[in-house]
């Protein structure tokens, strides 16, 4: 079999847009199921009282990572055709920090704010307005920051290429790390709950 299907021309652009809606529905559905329509639930991650964000995010990463890894090794997916966003380290570090600030101040990320807005949260809609404003500012400032935006280019780069450690070993390491993080998260939640209970 030849996958990714779209890259082998199994269907055209129009059909790909239908696929987009279906995949988006799945994405939105599970985000809402996880409770990510609520800013309080999302923000609780940063106060160690509810580590759902970490659990859901890393479970999703591990699931997709294992899936795409084994499908590639078995020859079902040509991984070189799966788009890998090029790395520009410094802008991504700074962008990540800004995004983290925005996350704890606003309570959402772009995907979850859509779900929050769809379930009727006013703050979700306002947050979306903020995103639009932020992108507009970025667009207007783009000529000034273009040099920084394109700085430290490293091309399409995987951790395996960077470190020289075989891809499979890194996959295993991520799984172990994730499970370790989940255990730590469960323990952290218990400690915080006990603390709160003790106070009350």
């Amino acid at each position: 079999m030849n996958a990714p299907f779209f890259k082998f021309g199994l269907f055209n652009d129009e059909v790909s847009l239908i696929v987009a809606v279906v995949i988006g529905i799945g994405f939105g559905f599970f985000l809402e199921r996880a409770g990510f329509g609520s800013a309080r639930k999302l923000a609780a991650q940063f106060y160690f009282t509810d580590m759902t964000v970490l659990k859901v995010m890393f479970t999703a990463i591990v699931t997709a990572m294992l899936g795409v890894y084994f499908l590639s090794v078995l020859g079902f997916v040509d991984l070189s055709l799966v788009y890998l966003t090029p790395t520009n380290l410094m802008p991504q570090v700074v962008g990540g920090l800004l995004l983290g600030f925005g996350f704890v101040i606003g309570g959402y990320c772009p995907g979850t704010s859509c779900v929050s807005a769809a379930t009727g949260r006013t703050d979700g809609w306002v947050y979306l307005g903020g995103i639009v404003a932020g992108i507009l500012v970025f667009g207007e400032a783009f000529p000034l920051i273009e040099t920084f935006y394109n700085s430290t280019p490293m091309g399409q780069l995987t951790l395996a290429q960077l470190t020289g450690i075989p891809y499979g070993i890194l996959v295993f390491a991520v799984v172990v790390m994730a499970i370790g993080a989940f255990m730590a998260a469960d323990w952290g939640e218990k400690v915080m709950a006990a603390k709160k209970g003790g106070k009350a």
Partner: peptide, 23 residues
């Protein structure tokens, strides 16, 4: 949860010997 973790660990361990996905 423990069963899911076990499945993930087994698959992860398999990945160590399964090779490079980029060929």
């Amino acid at each position: 949860n423990q069963r899911l973790a076990a499945v993930a660990l087994v698959l992860g361990a398999l990945a160590v010997v399964a090779g490079d996905p980029y060929q």
